[in-house]
């Protein structure tokens, strides 16, 4: 009985640190998927988020794909190589001391959450001020990340609108970062499907003709 309990705990352990987003529905949002939007999102990520988070599967050279010029990349990377991954400047030990956890890497974060970019967008819209004056998050209760953008105190108004627009771009960039080949994949897939449909039709006609003398 003890063993089965352990087993079941392993299977279904509800750990609140892992936000599953079960209670708060994800917000409906249309994310633009063009290089311009992504670049603006990347600028926010590279100036704000990478203070604590790594983006280790994205290398400086990859930023060319979202429209950064060589000069802009040179300014961003400083002494780092073009081929170096984009890493936070804060040492992980210090971050762990401050927040209790090492902030997760952001290069796969969109894919690692059901809803992808929508999750990211919803998360940022769900910071609120608790009665005790501390900031918490509806989507991710007990989140360790501080409300760096001051969403909880923002209220409704032009500030919030601008913030939301900016977050859409961040979500769009993070979706790209988690799956940079999506566009190549879909455009190739289009031709593959066209080919397969034509070829299958040809095979269908062949099969009918071959079978014509059987029926």
């Amino acid at each position: 009985m003890k063993k089965i309990e352990i087993l079941f705990t392993l299977m279904i352990a509800p750990l609140s640190v892992w936000a599953s987003g079960g209670e708060v529905p994800l917000m409906q949002v249309d994310l633009a998927h063009d290089a311009g939007t992504r670049k603006q999102g990347a600028e926010v990520v590279l100036t704000v988020c990478t203070g604590c988070h790594n983006l280790k599967y994205i290398k400086y050279r990859d930023l060319q794909a979202v429209g950064f010029s060589q000069q802009e990349i040179d300014d961003l990377r400083g002494a780092a190589e073009m081929t170096a991954p984009i890493m936070s400047l804060s040492p992980p030990d210090m971050l762990k001391d401050t927040y209790g956890v090492v902030p997760p890497d952001l290069s796969l974060i969109a894919k690692a959450r059901a809803g992808k970019g929508r999750y990211v967008y919803t998360l940022f819209n769900n910071f609120y001020m608790r009665a005790d004056g501390n900031v918490d998050n509806h989507l991710f209760p007990g989140i360790r990340m501080p409300d760096v953008l001051g969403v909880a105190a923002m209220g409704e108004g032009p500030d919030k609108k601008a913030f939301q627009e900016s977050m859409k771009k961040v979500a769009s960039f993070l979706e790209w970062a988690s799956d940079p080949n999506a566009e190549e994949r879909e455009s190739l897939g289009f031709y593959v499907l066209i080919y397969l449909i034509i070829f299958t039709l040809m095979l269908g006609v062949m099969k009918r003709r071959i079978w014509a003398d059987v029926h």
């Binding site: 070829f199 040809m202 006609v205 062949m206 003709r209 014509a212």
Partner: peptide, 19 residues
């Protein structure tokens, strides 16, 4: 059409080439 071996032959070749 079916009994015209040439047509069937052409389709067969075309299918083989495409495949």
């Amino acid at each position: 059409k079916v009994k015209d071996p040439q047509r069937r032959d052409f389709l067969g070749k075309a299918t083989a080439v495409v495949g």
